[in-house]
Design a protein around this nucleic acid. Sequence first.
DNA 1: ACCCAGGATGAAACCCGTTTCACAAACAAA
DNA 2: TTTGTTTGTGAAACGGGTTTCATCCTGGGT
Lengths: 356, 356
Amino acid sequence: MRPVTVYDIAREANVSVATVSRVLNNTAPVKKETRERIVALMHKHQFQPNALARSLSRKETGMIGFILPDITNPFFPEVLSGFDYEARKLGYTYFLCDTISTNEENERLYDRQYERESQYLSLLMEKQVDGIVIIGGRVDLAKPGEELAREVEEAAKRVPVLLLNGNLPQTHLNRIAADQKLGAQLAVQHLIDLGHRDIAVIGGYAKMTNTQQRLLGFRTAMKEAGLNVRKEWVLTEGFSVQKGQEFASRLLGAKRRPSAIFCMNDLLAIGALKAAHRLGIRVPEQLSIVGYDDIPQATYSIPELTTVSLQSQEIGRQAAKTLDKMIAGKKVPRLQSIMPELIVRETTAPFTEPSA
Amino acid sequence: MRPVTVYDIAREANVSVATVSRVLNNTAPVKKETRERIVALMHKHQFQPNALARSLSRKETGMIGFILPDITNPFFPEVLSGFDYEARKLGYTYFLCDTISTNEENERLYDRQYERESQYLSLLMEKQVDGIVIIGGRVDLAKPGEELAREVEEAAKRVPVLLLNGNLPQTHLNRIAADQKLGAQLAVQHLIDLGHRDIAVIGGYAKMTNTQQRLLGFRTAMKEAGLNVRKEWVLTEGFSVQKGQEFASRLLGAKRRPSAIFCMNDLLAIGALKAAHRLGIRVPEQLSIVGYDDIPQATYSIPELTTVSLQSQEIGRQAAKTLDKMIAGKKVPRLQSIMPELIVRETTAPFTEPSA
DNA sequence: ACCCAGGATGAAACCCGTTTCACAAACAAA
DNA sequence: TTTGTTTGTGAAACGGGTTTCATCCTGGGT
């Protein structure tokens, strides 16, 4: 059966569609009895206005595109849930756009992310979304002037784009980001305060600005404490539990090993925890570990992870609020910094000389 | 600047919009040079067809609504990622609809889920989605004839609706679901085979059909082995790590305690693991634990969880494929059962008499 | 030379709302 | 009573595509 339209209602109520539209949107006064007659008919027929038609003429859709790299990475659901909370309050719905590729074996492939990201960018624009938020992915990687960055900037000319946690350098795009450098400094300073001197870092991708920022924070804290960074204790290219286990095994298997490891995210930290366990190294007594992100899983492990909270939900909420303002044409600050916070739990302890 | 439309292209190419539309969709032959001229103009102006307008006349949007209860529960991102994979291949985009409510303190509230679910149902229909998939939430709870169930069925008359893992009894709606009873049986049988006789179950919600099914599987396996179920060892109402810890503490703190715990999901199992650890009970030597769902986090814990895999990604993939068929008007089986699989890892071991 | 099947194309209707404009009626102020 | 402002309403244009129908051409078959 054909869905009922304003025309059907109008005909049956002996009014014009204009009037029906008016009661639908309360956009102009309608005589009380006329209104009631129309409302009754709407209920009777379970009238649901066609949002496509409405959006087409209104030139606004109430739809947002949310581009993220990998929904199975628990960090993203966290920010997404914060975003969802505000977005819904503001009356938006959103498309979820995951830029990761998986092959038939469910292995995650990060190589085609760029391609996917720009595909989504134009797809979303065709769908006439009111705004786009991008977290992770290319915005973390692109260098100024690069083709990739240009595409995003191009899109931003046609529709509000908000970057989360990204770090597209030298861009005029609005962003909300945690201070990555500070977060790393917090973590490393904590280890130093506990008396650690042999500190390693694992994870991240050397090309990602986020990683670079955190590495910078790490180096800064080390330098200020007069400690030097051994380059074989800086292991990058990876963000998974798997990788964390791998990196930590390598670190802990060597003759000289660090007494503390700073991990670029919690997944890596969990991997490090596993590696230590396999090698019979007790955490935190013999090895301190600090994670990053404070995903819910950080409290699932035994011992629970000491980590740097990026306030993921808060970022998501801010994102929704800010994008809404941008859509409304209001001015918003170019960069909103979210202060990271160190959450001390159970994987860090004062340094003690190995008894053996 | 106003976006460029088919009319703009048509005017500049000295053709009618019909012709432009034809080259856009390859829907009828167009003279080669005309086509080339039009294509060139499209590129020149970076023409992007307005998907709203297109959908409005085509009466299909390529949009799907995906309703789930809580994206921060890692089970859902898993099925979502499987769904994403296929949906994208088939050319769909989807709205993510999270039915959980959170208050300002980010606490999750499940009480208003119903309301949210029906709001989303009509919202999605207004947005003219081509189909809707619902996982968890009301479809797990509703009894036949109930108001809630009716709403879903009502929606299903207007747009294809697919239920995942739900168990709306006596409904004619299409569903894809893992065999919950079998999954539980597998888990419990495994424990019994290992020599356990004192087995407890924790988690779930008594009103959820899923929980009921699993409980049924549990009881069946116990009965077949001639074991009886102690009712103080059946603890329901909860699905979180927190709850798991609580339940397990209660169980393990009692004078008489089980030698094995079957958990209604992996989060609970992780909680149980933590409780055991706090109480100094070694897993799996002194206590075996089996989870359910096989979320990625099941391998993050130490020891790694033995669990029942629901093949979450697979369910998601099937969902996309099936919904696509439904949208195309093809017949699909009323119920597709996904076989659960027991994944034996490190939290289960043969029963041994307590040495003390 | 004649007929017919495509090929190529345009005019116009259609999808379903919103919004502008015009106009009549009702009511208030002067 | 006259003028000015609301209230109440409809006709029609609009948003940006798709699709049907009609028309004109062209090449192949006989």
